[in-house]
């Protein structure tokens, strides 16, 4: 992969500790995968044509191909639809492998920009999705400008932020938590 466009994956560069890291991050049945391909036949990522989809991702994870997986944005295209979890014959819960890889990626700040945007919104406003101009839309249907959520309650918002500050977000957020 590093050899200037030469398309060979060097397994010697694989990192065995990556498998253990993923297991610790929730993919604890990862190694039982026998690559039967059932998830790959149902995964929206595969059906939509992403290069790395669930079956390939699980295999690459098992081989310890940390760099390849963290550099590729495919895991961030997972819909979390959980259909793979529902049908996996080995019950390895493939979606949890995706989550584990995302968690590993976040630790080294290797994720698409919109992931940070969602996190920043979540922390700042209490809502990951926080589009502009919503007040107008709400008015149109006769609802108050702001919904009765954390967005219209400063005291609760601060408490929610305190909760987030007590999670791993405190360590890895690439923006100030204040």
């Amino acid at each position: 992969m590093e050899e200037g466009g030469v398309n060979v994956i060097d397994l010697t560069q694989a990192d065995e500790s990556f498998v253990k890291e993923l297991e610790a991050l929730g993919a604890d049945e990862l190694r039982e995968c026998i690559q039967c391909g059932k998830c790959g036949a149902t995964c929206p990522m595969a059906l939509a044509g992403l290069e790395f989809f669930i079956k390939r991702i699980v295999h690459a994870a098992n081989l310890g191909l940390r760099d390849i997986l963290l550099e590729d944005s495919s895991v961030w295209g997972c819909q979390s639809c959980n259909r793979c979890v529902e049908i996996c014959p080995m019950d390895i819960k493939p979606y949890e492998v995706i989550q584990a890889i995302r968690r590993a990626a976040m630790k080294v700040e290797s994720c698409p920009a919109n992931t940070y945007e969602g996190l920043r919104n979540l922390y700042r406003f209490g809502h990951a999705v926080y589009p502009k101009g919503y007040e107008e839309r709400r008015k149109k249907v006769g609802l108050p400008d702001k919904p009765p959520t954390v967005i219209s309650n400063d005291e609760m918002r601060k408490k929610f932020q305190e909760i987030l500050r007590n999670t791993i977000l405190e360590e890895i957020a690439p923006f100030p938590l204040d």
Partner: peptide
């Protein structure tokens, strides 16, 4: 060692 990994869909090699 050079081989092909059908699950990765890629040629692979290792030492």
């Amino acid at each position: 060692v050079r081989g092909f990994d059908v699950d990765l869909c890629s040629p692979v090699e290792l030492e």
